[in-house]
Design a protein around this nucleic acid. Structure first.
Length: 892
DNA sequence: CTGTCGACTTGCTCCAATTTAT
DNA sequence: ATAAATTGGAGCAAGTCGACAG
């Protein structure tokens, strides 16, 4: 590792820089989606097939709102070639260490990775075209230039740090040579290049290492088992057998629990500390020890001193680990019975399941406020009024700008009004009275005293309490969404053909309940009605579902919360699968690279599609119906979504999931470039680029390369490996705050790779100008200080201040200190400002929740003495309880 | 194969609660 | 203390992908 690091001089820097770094993946400009909100403006590239994205519900007033100028052009990121190393999820150096020399690895990868350097987003701005940057431009310029300087420095600082610290230990750990047979099928089917083969890693190696070396790490037998099972074809019956082995041993327990739900809880509780939160699932309680204890310590300590904090935290966490290890062991058994069955596929997800069903929204209470029709008040029945109110309440959203929305609403509302109703045209309706009434209500609510609010909240809690929990195999777990969705108008995203349609009220007779055979069937909350059906299906995890009123073919499910063991289990499996990809990735890349020029067009398309999914982290792209928004993923890309820019760049511009625009220009290998050209030739803009392909075929192919592999695994893999890499390369000694910055930097990188966007906050522009103003003020101060310093040196008195008063005489030393302080302040503000600007359209949360293996984070926190709660909030800690006891040396 | 169904993951926005700045 | 900014998390839409029927 160390060696490797040293061989690539640039690598270090690459990671760091956000702006300049050559990140292969990076999407230079997260095109701001808001822009699109204002429809006309937005549409950029001619190539975009679907033009719009509409997103917008945000701006309050219909028209172009304040944020009109979102397009900030990101400082044109200039990734230069070096970057390839970085961005591309180059496998972590460590992992490479195995047989091949680093060099080999590099070579092998390089063709692919290097070539594909990200190109600066040429067009982003232009493309988006949108709104101008005019307004910003002035500020931006000076700013960006300044900032850029700063960032670079900063980056360098970071990057310069040690790249080889931990590697050492890592390398040791990792090097166990053992080749497993699993590899065979793969290698045989993949025509691997020499390099490729040399590079392959034993499939088991990674998994084993940790387990071997860290026996104590997670002490959990369970884990190892799972890991192993992963390396086998997912579906093998064998797996089941395996799992059943262990589980059968524990069976007695299972049955116990099924009979006596409480018993287990009690037992376990006794085993661990007596904490009385019964309501906390055992699983959590166990793991919670760590985080929560930490919290106490750190919370206090934080205020004191950084060093202290970390020390105490780390020590406490060590303690905790030990403790929890014990606990885990004990509890693991009881737990394993739960987890194992789930891990197999299709099979049993639970043995006993007890819950109280769902809670319905209150019936509609008419407010009696009359809307106007052609200026006159109209009487509406409660049903008509209810729907009118749904519409009125949305008067200040962008949906009012959408004809489709109004049309759909009108169609549904009209049915309620009846043919002969006074109201004949939507255009003649004035909903403002109702809108105003609603605003008043909101205002009143806001004005309520905190006491009232609290009381109300408690009341609600009391009502909902019983629905919040389920008992799964004897463990009390939180239920995710136990509230039935209230009626409303469908808010489809983008140009959804069904936006505005009435989403009717769900009644008990629409709902199917799933519950344990022996459990008490929840009583139907509406007198006189009954559930549609009650099932006892333990191969699924849902507690209830109903058909989506907008699309009756689809369902709305009630699941357990993310903190549940059931969810945690599958989350873990997801990451284990992604980790497994690490062992196959080199040969997979080699294989598709080879197929870029296959004469078989289907093969070629599969190769190119896989390449795009790997390199650009695109989604698979299932087919969609006409009654859905027109968005695409990899397999559904249209000819017009990709533009070939000679000599070898591709410009992507399409609307992806949630109608979020993806704009990115990348340099690709020449064969890919050519292949795309071929796929496009002779087709219309709106034809499928990959006409021989769909996600089923693609995934079927992927599955041949690695058991269980599907397109989405690449996203998880690339996201997690990027985090792991960046954290391990970028973290240097320093205080916690600096380390957190490194983390955020990595997190941001991942978010950009995955194109996780958010809308610019309404106040962004304001906030920015405030900051600019402050900086300007400081600069004035600085200037004056400098003048005074000059004068002081010459023995002259300081200048008068603004009010004409004489300032105190200060020594040059003092003035110098002040100047330095002011400079530091200015720099910090500029940095903050830049960060803010950079992140204004980037959403960090999504990747944290869904793509980054929490064990990477936890292990890093342990290694660097960063309190985990600085990175994970309460809900994330709960969700990732399963990852908390990871070995500090864990690498993805 | 293909299409549909079914289950589950991913993703963005809104709004209230909390934190931070003034 | 108040206002502004940030964060947490609910809410629900929109994806992915496996199973299975025809």
């Amino acid at each position: 590792m160390a060696v490797e690091a040293s061989t690539k001089p640039n690598a270090v820097y690459d990671f760091y820089d956000d702006d300049d770094g050559p990140i292969v993946f990076k999407r230079c400009n997260p095109a701001s989606r808001q822009n699109q909100g204002n429809s006309e403006v937005r549409k950029p590239s001619p190539s975009t097939v679907n033009g719009q994205n509409a997103h917008g519900q945000k701006s309050k007033t219909a028209v172009v709102s304040s944020m009109a100028s979102p397009v900030k052009s990101p400082p044109p990121s200039q990734k230069s070639s070096a970057s390839s190393a970085k961005a591309s999820p180059v496998k972590s150096p460590v992992s490479n260490s195995k047989g091949s020399t680093p060099l080999d690895d590099r070579l092998k990868l390089s063709p692919l990775r290097n070539v594909s350097t990200a190109v600066k987003e040429v067009g982003v701005k232009d493309d988006n075209g949108l709104k101008s940057d005019d307004e910003d431009s002035e500020d931006d310029k000076p700013l960006s230039s300044r900032l850029r300087g700063n960032t670079n420095m900063a980056n360098k600082g970071l990057g310069a740090s040690k790249a080889d610290d931990f590697p050492i230990s890592k390398a040791d750990v990792k090097s166990d040579p053992e080749d497993s047979d699993d590899e065979v099928p793969l290698s045989s089917r993949i025509p691997k290049s020499n390099i490729g083969s040399s590079d392959r890693k034993p499939i088991y190696s990674n998994e084993k290492k940790p387990s071997v070396s860290k026996v104590e790490q997670n002490g959990s037998i369970l884990r190892q088992k799972q890991q192993n099972s992963f390396s086998m074809p997912v579906k093998r019956p064998l797996d089941n057998v395996n799992s059943s082995g262990p589980s059968s041993a524990k069976k007695p327990k299972v049955s116990d629990t099924s009979k006596v739900v409480k018993v287990k809880q009690v037992t376990v509780k006794a085993e661990e500390k007596a904490d009385d939160d019964d309501h906390i699932p055992i699983a959590h309680r166990i793991k919670k020890l760590a985080p929560s204890d930490n919290k106490l310590v750190s919370a206090k300590a934080t205020k004191v001193k950084a060093t202290k904090v970390t020390q105490s935290v780390s020590s406490s966490s060590k303690k905790i680990n030990k403790k929890s290890k014990k606990v885990v062991k004990n509890s693991q058994y009881s737990k394993s019975t739960k987890m194992l069955p789930g891990s197999g596929d299709g099979q049993k997800k639970w043995t006993t399941l007890v819950h109280n069903g769902v809670i319905f929204p209150p019936q509609y209470t008419p407010h009696g406020v009359k809307m106007l029709y052609k200026g006159k008040e109209v009487d509406l029945t409660p049903e008509q009024e209810e729907v009118a109110t749904m519409f009125a309440v949305m008067l200040d959203t962008d949906y009012m700008q959408k004809p489709k929305f109004k049309e759909n609403f009108w169609n549904d509302w009209r049915k309620l009004l009846g043919r002969n109703h006074v109201i004949q045209k939507l255009e003649d309706c004035d909903f403002r009275p109702i809108y105003n009434w609603h605003q008043d209500q909101k205002e009143k609510k806001k004005q309520m005293s905190s006491g009232e609010k609290k009381a109300q909240k408690e009341e609600k809690l009391k009502q909902e309490e019983k629905y919040m929990w389920a008992i799964v195999d004897g463990v009390k777990e939180k239920v995710g969404n136990f509230r039935v969705e209230p009626p409303g108008l469908f808010r489809g995203r983008g140009e959804h053909p069904k936006m505005g349609k009435l989403k009717k009220r769900i009644r008990p007779s629409d709902i199917t309940i799933n519950i344990g055979k022996d459990a008490l069937i929840p009583e139907c909350p509406v007198p006189g009605e009954s559930w549609k059906e009650v099932k006892h299906d333990n191969t699924v995890t849902w507690l209830a579902f109903w058909n989506d009123p907008i699309n009756p073919k689809e369902f709305k499910y009630v699941f357990l919360a993310a903190s549940s063991a059931l969810k945690g289990q599958s989350d873990k499996e997801k990451y284990e699968k992604a980790r497994k990809l690490k062992d196959y990735i080199a040969s997979i890349r080699a294989a598709y690279t080879k197929d870029f020029v296959s004469r078989d067009i289907t093969r070629r398309q599969i190769a190119v599609a896989t390449y795009l999914i790997d390199k650009l982290a695109l989604r698979a792209g299932n087919e969609k119906d006409d009654d859905e928004a027109d968005t695409v993923g990899c397999c559904t890309l249209k000819v017009g979504n990709v533009e070939c820019i000679p000599p070898n760049k591709l410009k992507f511009d399409f609307l992806g999931k949630d109608s979020i625009q993806y704009v990115n220009t990348v340099e690709v290998e020449l064969p890919v470039y050519k292949a795309i050209g071929q796929f496009q030739s002779g087709k219309q803009q709106n034809d499928d680029l990959f006409d021989k392909l769909d996600t089923a075929k693609l995934n079927a192919h992927l599955k041949e390369l690695m058991p269980g592999l599907t397109a989405k695994v690449f996203r998880t893999y690339n996201a997690s490996i990027t985090l792991d890499d960046m954290l391990n390369r970028g973290t240097k000694d320093g205080d916690v705050a600096e380390k957190i910055v490194v983390y955020q930097q990595a997190n941001k990188e991942v978010a950009i790779i995955c194109n996780h966007q958010r809308s610019v906050s309404k106040s962004h522009t304001t906030q920015m100008s405030k900051l600019t103003e402050k900086i300007e003020e400081l600069k004035v101060v600085l200037k004056d200080l400098k003048i005074d310093l000059d004068r002081a040196r010459k023995g002259k008195p300081p200048m008068k201040d603004a009010d004409g008063k004489r300032k105190r005489n200060l020594t040059p030393e003092v003035l110098e200190r002040k100047i330095a302080q002011t400079n530091a302040k200015i720099e910090k503000m500029e940095r903050d400002m830049q960060t803010k600007e950079d992140l204004k359209t980037v959403a960090l949360g999504t990747s944290k929740i869904n793509y980054l293996d929490p064990r990477i984070t936890v292990a890093w926190c342990k290694r660097h003495e960063v309190p985990i709660e600085k990175i994970f909030n309460k809900s994330l800690l709960a969700k990732f309880a399963w990852a908390m006891d990871v070995d500090p040396e864990f690498r993805f």
